[in-house]
Amino acid sequence: MTPWLIFGAKAVGGLACQMGVGPAFTIVERRVAAWIQGRVGPNRVGPLGLFQPLADLVKFISKEQIVPADADRVLFLLGPLLVFAPPIFGFCVIPYGNMIGDEHLQIANLPIGVLFVMSVISTGVYGMMLGGWASNNKYALLGSLRASAQIISYELSLGLAILIAVMMSSSLDLNVIVEQQAGKGFGAWNVFGGGHLSQLPSGLLGFGLMFICALAENNRLPFDLSECEAELVGGYHTEYSSMSLGVFMLSEYLSMILMCGLMTSIYLGGWSFPGITDPSDHSILAGLISWAVFMTKILSMMFVYVWIRWTLPRFKYNQLMDLGWKAFLPASLVNIALLAVIGVMGV
C-alpha cells in the first residue's frame, strides 16, 4: 500500500469519528433531553427517528440565507467557517485507536500534539467574535463579547489542567501519553494518578477542572452565556439563518467531540481499557476494538454533557468570571505546585 492510501484511510477514519458522530449526536441529545423532561422527543423520521439529523440538514440547506442589511457581508459569512474549522484541525492529532500494523490510528502524529490542540481550539472564538460583531446586532455583539471574555478566562485554567496530565506523562505527544496509560490497569490512567498513588488527588482535581473548563470552552450549559436564548435571543448567532446557523450548531458538536477526545486521551487512557484492549496486539480486529473503546468513552462523556445541559441553570456573567479567575485558576496553580512537589520528592 502506498503511504498516501494509508494516510487517506486514516483521515477518513478520523473524520468519521467526528463528522459522522457529530450530526448523529444531535438526535441523541434531543432524545436524552426528552427522556429527562418526560417527553417523547423526535421519533417520526425513519426508525426511532434516527434520520432526524438528515431532515434537519435538508431543512437547514433549503432555508433562505439572510444577511442583515448593514452587516459586514464577508465577515458575516466567514464567521461560521472560522468556528467550524478548528475542531476538525484539532482532531487530527487525537489517537483514535491502537496501532494497526505499524500505523498509528491518528491522522497526523505530531510530537507536540497537546500544544497543537490547545493552539487550534483557541482560534474558534474568533469566528464567534467576528460573526457576532459583523451581524450589526446589539444582542449578537453582547454575545460575542461574552464569548471572548469567557474563552479567555477559561482557557488559562484549561491549559493548566492539561499541563497536569503532561507533567504526569512527561510528554506532549498524545500517542506517548496514551500508550503510557494503556495496559497497566486503571491506576495507570492519569485521572487516577498515572501509576503513582501519590498523584491521585492531582489527577482527580486536574480532570475535574478540565471537564468543567471544557464545558465552558464548548459554550455548553451552564456556561452558554454567549448564546443564551433567554437573555440574548440567540447570542452571537442571533442573525444567522439557513446553513450558516447549521454550521454554528454543528461546530458545537464537533468541538464537543474534540474536547471529549482530548480529555479521554490525556486523562482516561485514550483507546485503552483494562481487560478489553491489548496494547501489544496490532491486528486489525484489535485496532477496531480499541477504536470502539475510544468512541464509547467519548460518547459517555458527551452523554454527561447532555445530562448537565438539561439539569443545571446557567451562570451569570460576573459569576462566571468569579469562578474562572477566583476559583479555577488558583485551584489549577495549587494543583500544579502540588504535583511538582510530589514529582521532585519522587514519592
Binding site: 429527562i36 417527553r39 433567554a230 439539569t311 446557567r314
Partner: peptide, 15 residues
C-alpha cells in the same frame, strides 16, 4: 427556572 437555563424544570411544571 427556564429563564435561568434549567429548561427541564419548566417541562415538569407543564406536565
Amino acid at each position: 427556572a427556564m429563564d435561568l437555563g434549567a429548561f427541564s424544570v419548566m417541562l415538569w411544571a407543564f406536565i
